[in-house]
Amino acid sequence: MLEIKDLHVEVEGEGIEILKGVNLTINKGEIHAIMGPNGSGKSTLAKVVAGHPEYEVTKGDIIYNGESILELDPDERSHAGLFLAFQYPVEVPGVTNNTLLRESYNTIAASRGREELDPLEFDDYIREKLDLVEMNPDFLERSVNTGFSGGEKKRNEIFQMAVLEPALALLDETDSGLDIDALRIVADGINKLHHEDNSVVLITHYQRLLNYIVPDHVHVMIGGKVVKSGGKELALELEEKGYDWLESLATVNGEAK
């Protein structure tokens, strides 16, 4: 489904290289977890896959469903089924969640030749999705992320995912900021949304999330590279040992951080 090949990325116009040859393959139906210390490039990877204009791919490729998506705009990638739950969801004052989601849903539906929903139909549809993440309907009429608490923003991201039903969801630290009950509810929601035809990438610092959502593969990013991959037991090992023992792998190819 997604194949990232030797991906090198710089901050546009500044020549600072952040990703230094990332390789990663995600198949349909799989759940992957990406872990790694602060500043290792996890969010950058997610944003580059989603097409953030701030970053420039200098080498390598991103293949999605068999085709390179490097030339696609972020909205085209979204139409193709890519979803990014942001580590820092953005506030859009004056635009209600409901308005944004209906525009999003209908734009994506139209791009795929599916039927658009009128406001009443959409209202029925969206209410089911609220239940999935146990979100209060009041949030539909509130401005997108504006004044939301940290945890509410994260839950709102998963609510949006539920509405848009992406084929590949990149969830960037969705667990950070959620209280214990909220974590369980959101994780349940993600599990319910996951099925054999879609894939999920969880970026996280905490092993605990992986007790709720069990990954098929765990990767460790350090210094802009995936330095180690393994099964779910790798997360437990990291919990125990930290990242120190892996640091040396980041420079193995003679390329220092």
Partner: peptide, 23 residues
Amino acid sequence: QIFYLQQRGLSEDDAISLIVNGF
């Protein structure tokens, strides 16, 4: 802000319209 809305499927024009409209 624009990237966030584009990620949700809106074109750049629509993203700006929405932001301005909200404002």
